[in-house]
Every structure is written in structure tokens, then in C-alpha cells.
């Protein structure tokens, strides 16, 4: 079958996509809340102020959430999915929980989707927790490329910058059953 082509989100996606609490997978005051955040940068290192980032993740036990309620959050249910737009400095942030490994012994990651004005189709990537577990994707990359997929641990969070192009360009992913 022929898959529908993607098209850019354009400059006006704020009208349709962001919603209140979209970036709060847990309330920021949650005792286990961490801030997953970073900047989206273009090929010259300039901030991308009109990008949209979505994350999808396991809960701390490694279970894949099946609960509804991401759009109208009740503050108690962990749905594992969030959406955040970048600000004028290209910065995005989520309040969330640290994901567990969906398979024991594997390195946990956030699945990340990137949209932006000027980006004709979405990009997929992974934001891994720092660690030393083996991983099929990470182990097949050069050190420099691998580093683009690993978050930096901070006191209360995890830092993950996204470079759309150029020096330190993030490794973006495709999957077998997609048209290219």
C-alpha cells in the first residue's frame, strides 16, 4: 500500500497541537519528577523557536503505559506521552519520570519525535539514559555519533539537545516498515 506522505507542521502548529499540561507527564512537584529538557538547534547552531517535541516512554518499572488521559491529565495517571513546543531560545522541557528498561538488562530510552517549521517530515530519535548496558543501536555507532543519543544527567533532570544538522548532528532513525 502507498503510505501518505508527511508535510511540515509549518509555523502555525501552536494553533492545533500544544495543549495545557502537555509537557507535564507528572506534575513538576511530584517527588520523583525529573526535567527532561534541551535545545533544538539548526545547522548554524541557532535556536529553533518553532519546533515541537513529543516523547513516549515506559514507566519507571519498564512497563509500557496503556492508560488514556494525556490531553486532560488528572495528575495521578502516568500515560507516558507528552508534547512540548520550543520557546524563543529553542528550549523545550518535560516534567516526567525516569523510564525503566522494557527488557531487563537493556538501556532505557525515551522515544522522541521532532517536528518544526522548515522540517518537511517528522524525525524520530531516542534519548537514552546514561549507563553502560549493551544496546544494539548505540554499540553500532561511532563514539561521536553515539554521544548525540545519550542524555546528560543533571541534579534534577536529564539534558538532551537536538541538533537538526551539522556539527554534532543528532542520529535520527528510520524503521523497517516505513516508506523512504
Amino acid at each position: 500500500m502507498s503510505f501518505a506522505p508527511g508535510q511540515t507542521v509549518g509555523p502555525f502548529f501552536h494553533l492545533g497541537l500544544p495543549f495545557e499540561g502537555g509537557n507535564l507527564l507528572v506534575p513538576a512537584g511530584h517527588p520523583d519528577a525529573v526535567r527532561l529538557h534541551g535545545r533544538v538547534l539548526d545547522g548554524r547552531g541557532a535556536a529553533v523557536p518553532d519546533a515541537l517535541i513529543e516523547i513516549w516512554q515506559a514507566d519507571p518499572s519498564g512497563a509500557v503505559p496503556r492508560a488514556t488521559g494525556s490531553i486532560r491529565r488528572d495528575g495521578f495517571t502516568f500515560t507516558g506521552w507528552g508534547r512540548a513546543q520550543t520557546d524563543g531560545d529553542g528550549h523545550y522541557w518535560f516534567s516526567t519520570l525516569v523510564p525503566g528498561a522494557t527488557t531487563p538488562g537493556r538501556r532505557p530510552f525515551f522515544a522522541v519525535t521532532v517536528f518544526a517549521r522548515g522540517l518537511t517530515d517528522r524525525l524520530f530519535t531516542r534519548a537514552y539514559l546514561p549507563g553502560d548496558e549493551p544496546d544494539a543501536l548505540l554499540d553500532g555507532l561511532s563514539g561521536e555519533r553515539r554521544a548525540t543519543l545519550i542524555t546528560t544527567r543533571e541534579e534534577r533532570g536529564l539534558l538532551f539537545d537536538i541538533h537538526l544538522q551539522g556539527e554534532g548532528e543528532t542520529v535520527f532513525l528510520s524503521y523497517p516498515r516505513q516508506a523512504r
Binding site: T103, R106, G118, L137, L173, S174, R180
Partner: peptide, 23 residues
């Protein structure tokens, strides 16, 4: 200035990538 210049890296989806969020 907003497109990756490297080819996309093909991976087999695993874990959460095999599922979508529920609404």
C-alpha cells in the same frame, strides 16, 4: 538549515516504539 545531512539510521523498533500512546 533544518534537515539532517546524514542518512537516517535504520533500527528495529523495540520496547515503547512497538506501541502508541492511548487516548
Amino acid at each position: 538549515l533544518r534537515h539532517p545531512t546524514r542518512d537516517l539510521h535504520q533500527v528495529d523498533p523495540e520496547g515503547v516504539e512497538l506501541w502508541a500512546p492511548c487516548f
